[in-house]
Amino acid sequence: MYSTILFDLDHTLYDSDESERLAYAHTAATFGLADPDAHFGTYVDINRAMWAAVERGELQPTDVRHRRFEQFNATVGLDADVEEMATAFVWGLGAHGTLYDGAADVLAALASRASLGLITNGLSDVQRSRLSRLGIADYFDSIVVSSEVGVTKPRPEIFDVAFEQLGHPDKATTVMVGDSLTSDIAGGAGYGIATCWYNPHGKPLAPDSAPTHQIGALSELLSLV
């Protein structure tokens, strides 16, 4: 059905929750945060709110790098250098975390049958470090990182960049695969391509979202090419 497959990275191919937990632990230990586990939920709430603002076009990804720690420090009463915290955290995000089980095998199988692209909302040094460490960059004919191009999913301009790099494939045979209904699915649908919602935990579908496909395992993608 599809000869071009566009992937999201975080929470689709890559266990970003694990990466985030380990990066937070590294940062908390570096700056001597008392009882860091008690404040992890605070960090998560702040971070998610800021990335939601990025999707709405209210912030740039590079803004999130330090602003989340400005707000975190003010909330928990930590007197630490924000830029140093941001640097430690970004290093941790790149250095920790793994692909979901079977993701590399699925990419290898799909790459022999279709053209693959990656479109990710994130910081360049984090995402590039992850791709290099995990050894999956060569599977993709296009890699678009939002902080490098100045636009984020679900905006159509970020899809324009990917399509340019891929040689303008036929939209009718292109599908966007991702876990986020507001970023991946809304972005793909708005661009006029098919969408595939990666939903391994069986979350309910939002009433205003209608992905073309829904899968619970990445291996199910093999039946779409």
Rank of each mutant, 00 (worst) to 15 (best):
H213P: 07
D184C: 07
A172F: 09
A25R: 15
L107G: 02
R113H: 14
D184G: 04
G97M: 03
G135L: 08
I143L: 14
D125P: 01
A194L: 06
A28E: 04
D125F: 03
Y2D: 01
A52P: 01
G135R: 14
R133C: 05
S124A: 15
Q214V: 13
H11W: 05
G178L: 07
G150D: 00
L22H: 07
F72W: 14
H11G: 03
V151S: 08
R65L: 02
I185E: 00
A186E: 13
D37F: 11
A103W: 01
R56K: 15
L131D: 01
V44E: 01
F72A: 01
A189G: 09
G202N: 12
N121P: 13
T195C: 08
S147Q: 07
V177N: 04
E18D: 10
S129W: 03
A172V: 09
Y100T: 11
L116N: 00
A109H: 06
S115I: 02
S115P: 00
E220W: 06
G192L: 10
R68C: 07
D208G: 03
L134E: 08
A210L: 12
L116T: 01
I215V: 10
V82T: 11
H168E: 11
F40G: 02
E157H: 10
P154M: 09
Q71H: 07
T30N: 05
R56L: 12
T62F: 13
H39I: 08
S209M: 11
P211R: 02
G41Q: 12
D8M: 05
V145I: 15
D15G: 05
S132V: 09
A38C: 12
D170I: 14
L33T: 04
M1Q: 10
K203L: 11
Y139E: 14
H96Y: 12
R56Q: 15
V64E: 03
L166N: 05
A172L: 12
L181G: 01
P61F: 13
T152C: 15
G150P: 05
K203Q: 14
S3N: 10
T182P: 01
E70D: 08
T173M: 05
D8A: 10
K203F: 10
Y14R: 03
V106P: 00
